[in-house]
Design a protein around this nucleic acid. Sequence first.
RNA 1: GGGCGGUUAGCUCAGCGGGAGAGCGCCUGCCUUACAAGCAGGAGGUCGUAGGUUCGAAACCUACACCGCCCACCA
Length: 782
Amino acid sequence: MDGSAEPRIKEKRWKIDFEEEMIRKWESEDWWKFDPNSDKPSFVIDTPPPYPAPVWHIGAAVSYSMQDIIARIHRMLGYNVLYPIGMDRNGIPIEMYVEKYEHINMWEHDRDDFERLCRQYLDQWTEKMKEIMKRLELSGDYEENYYQTDWPEYRGLTQLTFKILWDKGLIYEAERPNNWCPHCKTTIADAEIEYKEKDGMLYYIKYKVKETGEDLIVATTRPELLFGCKAIIVHPDDERYKHLHGKTAIVPLIGREIPIIPHKEADPEFGTGVVHICSFGDVNDVRIFRELKLEPVKVIDTEGKLTEVAGKYAGLTGKEARKAIVEDLEREGLLVDKKPIKHKVPVHERCKHEIEIIPMKEYYLKQTEFLDTLRKYVEEIEWYPEKYKQHLLNWINSVTVDWPISRRRYYGTELPIWYNKKTGERFVYADGKYRKPWKELPPKLPEGWNPEDVEGEWRTLDTWMDSSISVLFITRWMRDEEFFKKTFLEGTKLRPQGYEIIRTWLYYSLLRVHQLTGKRAFDKVFINGMGLDEKGRKMSKSLGNVIDPFEIINKYGTDALRMYIALETSIGENYRISEQKIQGAGKFLTKLWNIARFISMFEPAEERPKLEPTDEWILSELNRVRERVIQYYKEFDFHNAALELRKFTWNVFADHYIELVKRRARGEEGFSEEESKAARWTLYEVLRQILLLFAPIIPAITDKIWRELYDERSIHAQEFPAAIEGIKDYSELTEKIAEFNSYVWNTKKERGIKFYEPIEGIEIPEELEPFRKDLVATHRIQ
RNA sequence: GGGCGGUUAGCUCAGCGGGAGAGCGCCUGCCUUACAAGCAGGAGGUCGUAGGUUCGAAACCUACACCGCCCACCA
C-alpha cells in the first residue's frame, strides 16, 4: 500500500498565533509545578525577581529566557524543579517614579499615602510584567511559589533575619563616614557606587608654612572642603618637601594650623605632590583621618550644602560654594593656577548623582570576618562560566568595612527597632510578622517601658537585605521545615543572574545565607552575558538603541527569539542583538515545521519493524547527537546543544535521510510494505527525539507538533529520550553518505540532468553498499 | 595602576597541538507534489604584529599593538 496520505499537519508554516495557544494550554496544566510529594531530586532556581517597570528591556527578556531554558532542561532531566517567579518591589526606583509623576516630594508627603501610591504603580506594572513573562514562555511558578519582596510575609522574614543577626551580635550601630547620596538623601553601601568619568577643574591653592613662611601649593578638585582640612601630606621621599616634615601649614581663608606629615599616599607625580586631607573628599581621606586619629569636621550636610563651619559660605550647595570660594581665593591671590582635569567621581548607581562622604549614625552588618568563609564557598561553587568566579573573588578581596544597612527611605522594610525616649534604650523585636515600627508597637514591650515613651524606627533596610534572602524565602525557611529540607537542604540550588549584580545580589546572598544558616547558598551559579546592540554597544535610552522585546515577539515570535538566544549566545558572553539574526533563527522553525508536516503525511508504524541499514544509520547518528546534546544540557551549554541539534535536524536528517527514504516511505519503486514501514517508523522516531531534545529551547513549536503527532500530554511533561538499542552503528558513515549524495547531485548538475531524473554511470562506493537500494531509488541510478 | 577577556571569511562568532570552519550576507542554477523563510552548487581568510617551543602552531610560551570589561587611593 501507499503509506502516504494528506498531512495531518495542515498549515504550511509555523504561526505566531500557535504560541499564544500553547501558552494558554500550559496555564491550565501542572507539569511546570514543583511537586512537594515527588521522590525526584529537587532543583531550585533562585530566579532574579525583576523590578516591575512599564517596559522591559530585550536584554532582560533574553536573560529570563535563558533561565527558563535551564528550568525546562532540568525538568526533562528528571528533576523536580522549583522555579518561582518573584518581583523585587522595594527601594528607590519606585519612590523616584512616584515623586516625578505624582508631582510630590516624598519628605513632605504623608508616608502612608506615599506608600499607597508606590504600591498602586507597582501593582499595575507587576501585572504587566507577569503578562510579559508569560508571553516569553517562561514556565515559572506564578501561583503557589510566586512572591513579592514587599509582601508582609517577605518583609516579616527580612525583619526576622535582622533580629536573629542582632541577637548574634552581627549588627551594630555606629557613627562613621559613609557614602551619602544628597539626591536620595540616604546612606548607601560601597556596592551601590559606580564611578563616572567627569570633567573637573584642578585648583592650585596657596597654603602657608607657619615656621618658614614659604608658600605651599596644594592641588585639589574640591576647594570647598578646605574647611574640613586637618592635615597636609607629602610623599616621604619627595625631595622638594623633605624639609617640611613635621612643620605646620596654615589653611587659607580660615587660618587653621595643621600638621605636614610624610605619607606614602601622596603621589609626587600628581599635581604639586602636596595633598590636603579633608573630611571627606574620598575614601583616602577617611582612611588617613582614621589612621592619624584626626577629628573630622562636618563640612557638607545631608542636603549637600555647606554647614556653619563654612562661615559666610554656609548654606550654599557644594557647587555654589566652590564657585564663591574660588572667586575669593583668586581675589586674594591665593589661587595660583587652575587646570581642567578628567577624573572619575563616585556616583550612586540608582540616580547617578555624585555622592558625598558624611559621618552618619547608621546600622551595620558585620561582613569582614566572614570573607574567608565566602572565599571557600566561591571555590566550592560550580561556575558557569568559570571566569566569573574571579569577579566575585576580586570583590570579596576589596571589602574592608562592614555593610551599612540602614537607609533613609520610605518604601522598604523597616528596621524592627523601638526606642524608649525616656531611657534611650533600644528594643529589637521580630517574629516573622511584618511591622512598621514608626506606626505600630510590638506585641510586647520590655518590662518597665511605657508605651507613651516608645518611638519606632522609621528607617528602612537596604533593599539587598531583602533580596539577598530570596533563596531562603522561596525554600520556605522558618516557615515550612519539610519543604525547606526537601529544597534547600537536599536539593541542588542554582543562582542564575547577570554579572552586573555579582558584587551585590550574589555576594550579599552568600553572606546572609551563611550568617543565617551556616550553609552555602548555592551549588551552581550561572552568569549570563549582556545584550548589546548590533554594533556591540550597550543599549541605552540616550543612544536610542534600546529594543522592545515585544516588537521582536510580535514580529517573529518567542520561539524565534529563543532559538536565536540559543544559537547566538555563548554561555556567559555578551551578545549582539540584531533583528536580522532573530529572523534567521526563525527560519529553522519553518524548517522544523515542514519536516513534521512531511512526516505527518505518513501512517505511523505502531510496532518497531525490521529496520533497513539506512534507518539504522540515522538512528545511530541520532544516538550520538542525543548523548552529546544531553551532556551539553547538563553543563548549561544550550548554545552548543542547539547548534548540534540544528545541524543534525537540518543538514543530516532532512537533507540526507529524508531524501534517501522518501520513495521507500511512500512505498514506491518496488519497496515492500515492511521496508516502507521501517522508513516511516524511523521518521517518526527521529522526529520524536528531535522534538524532545529541542523542547527546552523552542517550547511552543515542539509542543504543538508533539500534540499533533504523538501525545496529547505536553512534551514538557516528558523526560529526554533514551538511546535506541539493537541497531548496527553506521554513524561513522555520515560524512560518506553526504559526500556521495553531493557527488551525484553535482554530477547531475554538470550533465544538465534534473534532480528527479535518472542518471547513468554512477558507482556506489563499497562502504555504502548496505544503502544501495535507497541510494538507487533516490537518485534513480541506472 | 592592577586584573580578566578579546583580536580567525564582508558581518557575528566557533575551533584551542596535526585537514581553516559555521550562521548571516554575496554569486550561479533550480517552483525536484514537506519546505522559495526552500533545494543544489560556488566564491571568499598569509587565523592582530614580532619572536620562541615543537617533526608540526590559529591553537602553547614571551613581548608588543589595538579593543572591551571589572577593580583601584589620581587628591
